[in-house]
Simulated assay, not measured.
Amino acid sequence: MTQSLLLCLIAERRIAFPAVKVRSVIEIERITPIPRTAPHIAGITALRSQALTVIDSRVALGFESSGDPAGSRAAVVDHEGHAYALLVDEAFDVTAALGEPERVPGGFGEAWAEAAIGMVETASGPALLIAIEQLIAGRGAGSLSESLPVRV
């Protein structure tokens, strides 16, 4: 099965989101913090008068935040009736997967193993296919990689 993927960088790692789940890629102008939320929730922002919950993907994976998200890129997704902006370090291509996701090889670390559906090959090289719902839930929500094979 061939699927389109949005290729991004998070914490210096090439990752991919299923493009069918991404509404758009935006540049974050301003984020309003939300008191008493989980650390990976950076706040809210607006997109054409719609509020988006902003997820700091780096923090959701257990890494340090890259700092002020103003000017950062984000993949806009819908999940369970809510809109989210997933902060990424860079969004750089939409390409096709060259096969099904494979099990994530060892050595990537617990954070990546928890959030990755699997490793997928593309024309520009391999990328970790990331479960959007894992980023939204944040670190410690449980691993999806054990459930392969997964059809996305």
Rank of each mutant, 00 (worst) to 15 (best):
A123Y: 01
F92Y: 13
A91G: 05
Y84S: 10
A83M: 15
A115Q: 02
A96R: 10
G81C: 13
Y84N: 04
E100Q: 09
V88R: 01
Y84Q: 08
A74K: 04
L98D: 12
E114W: 08
L86P: 02
G106C: 06
E110V: 10
E102C: 03
D93A: 15
E100A: 15
A91I: 00
A115W: 05
T95R: 10
W112E: 04
E110W: 08
P101Y: 02
A83P: 14
L128H: 00
E100C: 05
M119Y: 02
V76C: 14
G106D: 14
E80F: 13
G81I: 11
E80S: 13
L87S: 09
G106T: 10
G81F: 13
H82E: 15
L87R: 00
G99S: 08
P101I: 12
F108V: 12
A116V: 05
G71R: 00
D93N: 12
A70W: 00
A131F: 00
G99N: 06
M119L: 15
G71D: 09
G81Y: 11
P126T: 01
L86Q: 02
P69V: 03
G107D: 02
H79V: 08
A91M: 04
H79K: 08
I117K: 01
E114D: 07
L128R: 00
P126N: 01
L128K: 04
V104W: 03
A113L: 15
G107E: 09
W112G: 08
A127M: 10
A111V: 03
G81W: 08
A75Q: 05
E90M: 09
G109E: 11
L128S: 05
F108C: 05
T122H: 05
L98H: 03
D93Y: 03
F108P: 02
H82R: 15
A70G: 05
A127I: 06
E100R: 12
F108H: 08
D78F: 13
P126V: 03
A96Y: 07
E110H: 13
G118A: 09
A127G: 07
V104M: 01
E90A: 15
A111E: 12
E110T: 14
L128Q: 04
V88W: 07
T95Q: 12
E102Y: 00
T122P: 04
G109W: 10
V104T: 02
